[in-house]
Design a protein around this nucleic acid. Structure first.
Length: 421
DNA sequence: TCTGGGGTCCTAGGACCC
DNA sequence: TCTGGGGTCCTAGGACCC
């Protein structure tokens, strides 16, 4: 069998690029995209990096640059990014078998491409995605996923394409890369490695396997083997079933009343239930978590779960326990900054096990489904929350800030870009 | 004043079983 | 005082990813 070869294709400064596709002046000027609640900087384009803004910086610390006209900020517009991501993945799918790894990255099986053509193939991918979607992508190629990821990292400094398989001896290159730049080596593992004199990707590749196994577990061992060119992670073409669905938000302003906390949890529950139905799933348990601000003294966080009698995707059936849990978690002396809802115990909604102790009423099950289908259809047609439960509130004073939101150019007729000629 | 969200996997430890 | 071996399942917490 032919040894595998992987490409890792990722979009350059994905969120910023999505914003720039529909507002081309942004390609050339410093741009940042903010997290939910306009909290911190999650993406920067090249000009913004040159300005010295660090990723993850709290927005209020760089706000003066925006006020001075030196920096443009956008709230995150996940509707837009999700749609451009889907278009990018669809285009990439024309080049071979793919595994979507994140909103802006995918692995591609290169097995069917003659090795002499890797480079031109990668260039063709870049040209095509640029033409079809308008997004710049980079391609890294390697004999394992970990090496392909590392090659992609190098592609940032090599005109967009980097191919490890074209290089006879990669050791001198690995010696220039910090171990923490390797996929799977985070800050904690990085510390453990550094304490044992392992600072570079080359040292990691040559580290003692038994020590790695003991210190970093099987995941760490796999990383080392992959660096050695031994492929341990196959291309996953069918993503495994989701195990959980989570909707959580920081509040736009502090929440002190149980009414507001319940409104927020009700809203998150409805959103999570909508996601559930979109995926054809039903949930067996609901978890609610709440917390105060991490950045203040007396940080408080707590969570509680409720096991349902049988799996459901019916919003009111998920809402009742969620609200009950919220009342239990609320404390009068706490200022809440964030809450969330997690649905677990997910199963395909077509294969729900009936519960022996719960009355079975097929007509009401059918009615419930039809009701939810109608609600989803109305909300898709108009906007999420157009049709909602009273428990979600009207004014929603706690709702997330998004002061710099761009239009949903590709998914709303009313928000289409207008071209003046 | 203002500091994100949504996932997965692994491991260790406890409960429980024969 | 001495007190087996092996397995499963569940959960909480940690680490990682983007």
């Amino acid at each position: 069998m032919k040894a595998p070869v992987f490409a890792l294709v990722d979009c350059q400064s994905f969120y910023c690029s999505c914003e720039s596709v529909f507002e081309p002046r942004l390609w050339k000027i410093p741009l940042v995209v903010l997290s939910n609640n306009d909290g911190n900087v999650v993406a920067l384009n090249e000009p913004a990096k040159l300005l010295g803004v660090p990723r993850g910086e709290a927005f209020f610390k760089v706000r003066h640059l925006v006020d001075a006209g030196k920096l443009i900020a956008r709230s995150s517009n996940y509707t837009l990014y999700g749609d451009l991501s889907a278009r990018t993945m669809a285009t990439l799918g024309c080049f071979g078998s793919t595994e979507t790894y994140s909103i802006d990255e995918a692995f591609l099986d290169m097995g069917h491409v003659p090795s002499k053509e890797y480079n031109s193939f990668a260039e063709e991918i870049r040209r095509t995605i640029q033409q079809h979607v308008g997004l710049p992508v980079r391609v890294g190629i390697g004999s394992t996923k970990t090496l392909a990821k590392l090659a992609n990292h190098l592609a940032k400094k090599h005109a967009g394409v980097y191919d490890f398989t074209a290089i006879g001896d990669i050791e001198p290159i690995l010696a220039t890369i910090p171990a923490t730049a390797v996929w799977g080596i985070g800050s904690q593992s990085g510390k453990a490695l550094a304490a044992n004199g392992i600072d570079t990707a080359l040292q990691l590749r040559n580290a003692d396997r038994f020590w790695i196994r003991k210190r970093l577990g099987v995941v760490g061992l796999r990383t080392v083997l992959e660096l050695q060119g031994i492929s341990c992670l196959p291309l996953e073409q069918c993503p495994p079933a989701r195990r959980s669905i989570c909707v959580s938000r920081s509040f736009g302003k502090p929440v002190r009343s149980v009414t507001e906390l319940k409104e927020a949890v009700a809203t998150f529950t409805a959103q999570a239930a909508h996601k559930l139905r979109k995926n054809g799933l039903a949930a067996g348990a609901v978890t609610v978590f709440v917390s105060s601000s991490r950045y203040k003294d007396n940080y408080f966080s707590n969570s509680a779960s409720f096991q349902l009698l049988s799996e459901t995707a019916h919003t009111p059936k998920l809402l009742a326990p969620a609200l009950m849990l919220t009342e239990r978690l609320w404390q009068g002396d706490i200022t809440f900054a964030k809450a969330g809802v997690i649905l677990t115990g997910l199963t395909e909604s077509e294969s729900i096990q009936l519960n022996l102790f719960e009355p079975y009423k097929s007509w009401s099950d059918l009615q419930e489904r039809q009701l939810m289908e109608t609600v989803d259809a109305v909300n898709t047609r108009y906007s999420q929350g157009a049709l909602r439960l009273g428990a979600m509130g009207i004014d929603q004073p706690w709702k997330t800030r998004a002061q710099f939101l761009s239009p949903r150019y590709t998914t709303r007729w009313t928000e289409l870009a207008i071209v003046k000629a």
